[in-house]
């Protein structure tokens, strides 16, 4: 796409978006930057605090630093666990989806439904579902003799949060992979059939390479979303037991709103945001590289 005409008037087309995003993104971020450099004594009484919040935060020997390091580690572990299940499962289910016929529409609608449920309702649904007294999931696990208890046992809490995320977001991976699979021309499969290729060989040599681009997007979106997870664990476990499922977002809201410790919450927000931006930049670079290769 090197032959696009150069035209700076195109900026006028961008202006409405720019105005809106300046208001809804830059303004709040600058507020956060402002808070992160100040300390407050009561309401609206701020003074300059320099980089002290950041030094505390990044030093694991301080209380807030240790807390931040723990939450960060937990969040990474959670992202990793969720992705490790969702990506293979998503590809597998996408391979099973029918390509034509009446079953396509209904399968897609059912698959996508979990993504359209408000996040706290997802939490409530699973809070009920995981209870031993009235929930099928909890009762079934207890019934087969597993020591399952979301509010008391941290392993149960972790498993539940990962299962919820898998339930909630594998559909995104499925739909992305399915779209990628549908873009493969039938001729490829016919050629493979003539060569007598096995199902596995077709997957590795035809389907997987064609899926690479959508899978990069799937990994990116899922990494970001799991890294920002908030609502579901808050509803189901409240971050507990103890702080076993207190992920970064949860800790952030606890510090900012629960403890009204605006300065360190803001510093934490910025570090958190910078991690996300870095990951975003890495993925974006990989993606544009893939696209360029696809064009040539």
């Amino acid at each position: 796409m090197m032959d696009k005409p150069w035209n700076n008037k195109a900026w006028f087309f961008i202006l409405p978006v720019l105005a809106l995003v300046l208001f809804s993104s830059v303004l709040p971020v600058m507020t956060v930057v402002n808070y992160s450099l100040q300390d407050s004594m009561g309401v609206n009484n701020f003074f300059w605090n320099g980089d002290a919040w950041f030094r505390d935060l990044l030093d694991p020997s301080t209380e807030i630093g240790a807390r931040f390091a723990d939450a960060l580690l937990r969040t990474f572990a959670f992202s990793f666990a969720a992705l490790a299940v969702e990506i293979p499962l998503g590809i597998a289910v996408a391979l099973c989806l029918p390509r034509r016929g009446w079953a396509v529409g209904i399968s897609l609608v059912v698959t996508a439904l979990p993504m359209l449920i408000p996040w706290n309702v997802v939490g409530t649904m699973w809070q009920i579902f995981a209870r031993q007294d009235i929930g099928l999931f909890g009762a079934a696990l207890t019934g087969i003799g597993l020591p399952y208890n979301v509010t008391q046992d941290s392993v149960s809490a972790w498993v539940t949060i990962v299962v919820i995320d898998v339930w909630h977001w594998t559909p995104l991976v499925i739909l992305l992979s399915y779209a990628g699979l549908r873009a493969i021309p039938d001729a490829y499969y016919q050629a493979a059939r003539i060569d007598g290729a096995s199902r596995w060989a077709v997957f590795v040599n035809i389907e997987l390479p064609k899926l690479r681009k959508v899978l990069v997007i799937a990994v990116l979106l899922r990494f970001m979303q799991t890294f920002m997870i908030y609502t579901e664990p808050v509803v189901v476990t409240g971050g507990g037991p103890g702080s076993a499922t207190t992920f970064l977002s949860i800790d952030l809201v606890k510090i900012a709103i629960g403890q009204v410790d605006v300065g360190s919450a803001a510093a934490m927000s910025l570090v958190y945001y910078i991690i996300i931006l870095t990951a975003c930049w890495i993925f974006f670079t990989i993606m544009t590289q893939l696209e360029r290769r696809g064009d040539s």
């Binding site: 303004l27 507020t31 956060v32 970001m224 977002s249 952030l252 709103i257 945001y273 975003c280």
Partner: peptide
């Protein structure tokens, strides 16, 4: 901005 965590933006 698509990746902006809501938790960061809630207070501002």
């Amino acid at each position: 901005n698509l990746m902006a965590p809501s938790a960061v933006f809630a207070l501002p």
